[in-house]
Computed example of a mutant assay.
Amino acid sequence: MIKAVVFDVGETLIDETRIWSRWADRLGIPRFALLGVIGGMAATGRPLTDAFELLLPGVDLDKEQVSWAMDEPESLRNNFDADDLYPDVRRALAGLRERGLKVIIAGNQPPQAKSALEKMKLPVDAIYTSAEWDLEKPDPKFFLKVAEVAGVGAGEICYVGDRVDNDVLPASGAGMIPVLIRRGPWGYLHAELPQSAYSIVVDSLDALADLIAPV
């Protein structure tokens, strides 16, 4: 019996299109080129940062972020706000809580992501990031921490994400029930991988409540 549902952030709750489009504009790369190469990284299993190296060899992303913050201190830059939420998010989270489930957000995110999510006043019980835990998926310790903060057994937790490598396999390995959502480059591509058979696959978060907590 599922008692808690834990959500990844990027491309699970947050549509990252605007973030990558702003990165392209900042670096002087056509948006379509950057978004297309990011898709290529997803298809070939390469790290996301390789997309920038491929398009701009030698680019220093850390240095660029510092410079960007100085140039545009009031802009979103590589951050997100409520306008980036997928349209099913608030509705789905609220529906899960109405059925008595604990709802938690915990994903690989930088420090500022926690406050950004908290400002959205989402219907959740808690929000955590990899930065505050100093742990990143797919590290098994991340999922041990998820179980700890959820306060229930691993087998009573459903972990929802868009990637087989970062979400489905480590969540399954921790004894949780993984859900793969088909959206974003990784979500669509990873749903075709044989390893997706370890998970429930959904096209929308709206499907979750009836699947894991039927009335």
Rank of each mutant, 00 (worst) to 15 (best):
C158E: 00
R182D: 05
Q65I: 14
Y159D: 07
Y188W: 13
D84V: 11
L55V: 12
G151S: 02
W133T: 05
V149W: 07
V6P: 01
N78D: 13
E11C: 01
E53N: 11
D203Y: 01
D88C: 11
V215F: 12
L144G: 13
E16F: 10
D165R: 15
A43S: 11
D162W: 05
Q65E: 15
L193K: 15
V124S: 07
L85C: 06
L93V: 13
M176A: 06
Q195H: 13
N166V: 01
L35I: 13
E11T: 04
G151K: 03
P185S: 15
P57K: 10
S130V: 04
G95L: 05
L135H: 10
L101Y: 11
I181Y: 03
Y159T: 09
A116H: 11
K3E: 14
V179L: 05
A92F: 01
G161P: 00
D50T: 12
G45I: 10
V59T: 15
V179W: 04
R31S: 10
L55S: 09
D83H: 08
T49L: 12
D134L: 14
D125I: 06
E192M: 09
H190L: 01
V164I: 11
V201D: 02
L55E: 12
A113C: 08
F142K: 03
S115W: 07
L93G: 07
N79E: 14
R91Q: 13
A213S: 14
L211P: 08
D71G: 00
D88K: 03
Q65F: 14
L55Q: 09
N79P: 00
W186Y: 11
F7S: 04
L27W: 09
V59A: 14
L169W: 00
T12L: 09
Q112D: 12
S196L: 07
L76C: 06
R97H: 07
Y159M: 11
L189E: 06
M70F: 06
Q109D: 07
G107E: 06
T44C: 11
V152E: 07
P87Q: 04
I200L: 12
L54P: 00
S21F: 00
G184Y: 03
G10C: 04
E74G: 00
E98H: 12
K63T: 14
D88E: 09
P47V: 15
A171E: 04
G153L: 08
L27V: 02
P87Y: 07
L96G: 10
I157H: 08
A106D: 05
